[in-house]
């Protein structure tokens, strides 16, 4: 990958005469060329671009719930959580997806989704916060970005480069197609188990930092553990994540001694039941 990018960069530099006529910002190109040798270093703009197409793919599979009040609520809670992390200034976006499937997703650059099927099985805001914070953890550690780089030997970095060159004509359809293919493949296959465990550990701390009872995420894992494994609404979640019981047991050990003392922080049952209950009662 590194060699390929350098070659492409070299070729573009050699061609700088004619390319210049197409409005090429050479300094910008060199700058991005240096960064794109490794996708983890594409910079926040490249990360946001990949996240944008990944989010479009997810929402193509299941659209947003049409309930502004609910979406605004999830965005306020989500951003409050993200503000307690080392990346508070990303363009954080949170959404509830209109599907019975039980799941939650993250995409690079600050996109976080929870499905209606999972949201309706929660009991309080601390559980919602725990799930959102787990997904925020994936974004913080760039888990999807790194996995796309590792698995999609599609020259994404090189294509990011050409995107930067040709950003006026919108002529990066090919790049977008590749990015969408790589991300949907990843969502169908899932991240490494270790990434999930890491996001669990980050999630409970972020929830506690934000003032919640940190046992919201373990509580959701317990719900998942108690559900019928044959339920088709769980198919993707169970295929792409380690067993809920294992995650729950690992978290319980990791939290003992450090997070137990925050267990008396609010779970915000009343507000959750009011807003999510109002949505649930409408049945859309």
């Amino acid at each position: 990958m590194r060699v390929r990018v350098s070659l492409l960069l070299g070729a573009l530099l050699l061609a700088s005469g004619p390319v210049h006529a197409f409005n090429l910002d050479l300094n910008k190109l060199i700058d991005i060329g240096k960064k794109t040798t490794d996708l983890t270093e594409v910079g926040e703009q490249g990360e946001a671009e990949i996240g944008n197409v990944s989010a479009a793919a997810l929402l193509g599979a299941a659209p947003l719930v049409q309930n502004e009040k609910l979406q605004a609520y999830v965005n306020e809670i989500g951003l409050w959580l993200a503000m307690q992390t080392e990346r508070p200034d990303l363009s954080w976006r949170f959404g509830v997806m209109d599907t019975d499937s039980v799941n939650a997703f993250a995409a690079p650059g600050g996109y976080v989704f929870v499905t209606r099927g999972l949201l309706l099985r929660m009991r309080n805001e601390a559980e919602l916060a725990g799930v959102l914070a787990h997904e925020i953890g994936h974004v913080l550690k760039r888990h999807h970005l790194v996995a796309i780089q590792k698995n999609a030997k599609t020259g994404l970095a090189a294509n990011l480069l050409s995107m930067a060159v040709d950003n006026s004509s919108g002529g990066y359809g090919e790049w977008k197609k590749k990015a969408i293919g790589a991300s949907t493949e990843l969502y169908a296959r899932g991240l490494d188990k270790e990434d999930e465990f890491e996001a669990d550990r980050l999630g409970v701390v972020i929830a506690a930092r934000a003032g919640y009872d940190p046992y919201g995420l373990p509580s959701v894992l317990q719900t998942l553990d108690g559900m019928n494994a044959q339920d088709s609404n769980l198919a993707l979640l169970f295929k792409t994540h380690p067993a809920a019981r294992q995650r729950l047991d690992l978290l319980d050990t990791a939290m003992a001694g450090s997070l137990e003392r925050y267990a008396s922080q609010p779970a915000m049952k009343g507000r959750f039941e009011k807003i999510v209950g109002e949505y649930a009662r409408k049945g859309k």
């Binding site: 197409v53 599979a61 979406q71 951003l79 993707l236």
Partner: peptide
Amino acid sequence: GLSPEDMKNAQPAPEQVKKLDSFAATKSQA
């Protein structure tokens, strides 16, 4: 639904991402 197959065959919905932007919270709202 969101089965593994649905996920692989998903067609991008950029207009939904724009809609999502409209729900974004500000830090002071959070």
